[in-house]
């Protein structure tokens, strides 16, 4: 008789896997990716390809030659995802070397220093992005105008709606259709609110994420910006514009919901989401930068362990 396998229960597994989740998010990014390609053409393709390829390469090289692992972790999809998200957060006319540098910081500093997937306290793509934003503010804030399909470094640039708003020029903003579809300047993956929402719906449907983080971020921003708009429409943008411009939608649906760096309990996730919403609006309206989503997420990433410590799920049998 052959040897039986003995192990403790459970003896079956639901079939979920890290790969399914990571590639699931990648699939959810496809609509926004197509939108990015549609609006920024060649530049978007080059930036995204470079970003993904260099993220995967750095992941492989670092895990194999510095951490001394087998390097198989590249297939789990997390490096591809980081590459995609980093690319989404860059303007489509960014020089190649800057993208590679950003990828190195994202994977090398943001992720592998801490031990790789699951260990990083901060969202790697945002670490890369914010590093570039602070170190190379000029390149990182010259946004190409949408619709230049064949240009890359030579694309014409113009201010984004948020840039205009921070200069107090609220009259020149795109109309609602353009805002929703993404026909405006900005990072190549963040412009199309509709495409991002579509991806988010897919994530929710596939149960890759729960509603808590995106809804609490978007809800907080909508309510607070609504209040500000009602108080003073001449200084503050209307809520729809606030929600559809900048990295808000991308951040709320894809960056803040990153498993590793977001809180573990529903209650914690709502606190995290609300705080991100508040910090974003504070930075946008009263801070030095026109956009604050990345900073808000990174700041709240830092609070995640604290939130996890204090926001416990309600134990069964204790008071509701």
């Amino acid at each position: 008789m052959s040897k039986f396998i003995i192990s403790l229960s459970p003896h079956v597994h639901g079939g979920d896997s890290v790969e399914k989740n990571m590639y699931g998010v990648c699939v959810a990014l496809v609509p926004a990716l197509l939108a990015g390609l549609y609006f920024f053409g060649l530049g978007a393709a080059i930036v995204l390809t470079t970003s993904v390829v260099s993220c995967v390469a750095f992941e492989f090289l670092i895990s194999k030659y510095i951490l001394g692992r087998d390097g198989r972790s590249v297939t789990d999809g997390s490096a591809i995802l980081t590459g995609l998200l980093l690319g989404f957060n860059l303007p489509s006319n960014l020089p190649l070397w800057l993208i590679v540098l950003g990828a190195l910081v994202a994977i090398g500093v943001g992720k592998m220093t801490f031990g790789g997937l699951g260990q990083n306290p901060f969202n790697p793509a945002l670490v890369g992005r914010v590093f570039l934003l602070i170190s190379f503010p000029v390149q990182m804030t010259s946004w190409p105008v949408a619709g230049q399909l064949t240009s890359y470094l030579d694309a014409q640039t113009a201010a984004t709606p948020l840039g205009l708003a921070s200069q107090g020029r609220l009259d020149n903003l795109p109309d609602a259709t353009d805002l929703l579809l993404g026909n405006m300047g900005g990072s190549l993956g963040e412009v199309s609110a509709l495409a991002l929402l579509l991806g988010c719906a897919w994530l929710l449907w596939k149960r890759i994420i729960t509603w808590h983080i995106p809804v609490s971020i978007l809800g907080t921003v909508a309510v607070l910006s609504g209040l500000l708009y009602v108080a003073d429409p001449s200084t503050y943008m209307n809520p729809l514009t606030v929600l559809t411009t900048g990295g808000l939608m991308l951040g709320a649906c894809f960056m803040a919901t990153d498993y590793v760096t977001s809180p573990m309990t529903p209650r914690g996730q709502v606190i995290y989401g609300v705080m991100i919403g508040i910090i974003t609006l504070v930075i946008r309206n009263w801070g030095a930068y026109p956009e604050g989503m990345s900073f808000a997420i990174l700041i709240m990433n830092a609070f995640t362990p604290l939130i996890n410590t204090y926001c416990k799920p309600r134990r069964f049998g204790t008071k509701k």
């Binding site: 979920d16 260990q119 498993y259 573990m264 309990t265 799920p313």
Partner: peptide, 12 residues
């Protein structure tokens, strides 16, 4: 087994 990705599915 792979590294914990802190997806919180076990909590939920």
């Amino acid at each position: 087994p792979q590294a914990c990705i802190r997806c919180a599915k076990c909590v939920s």
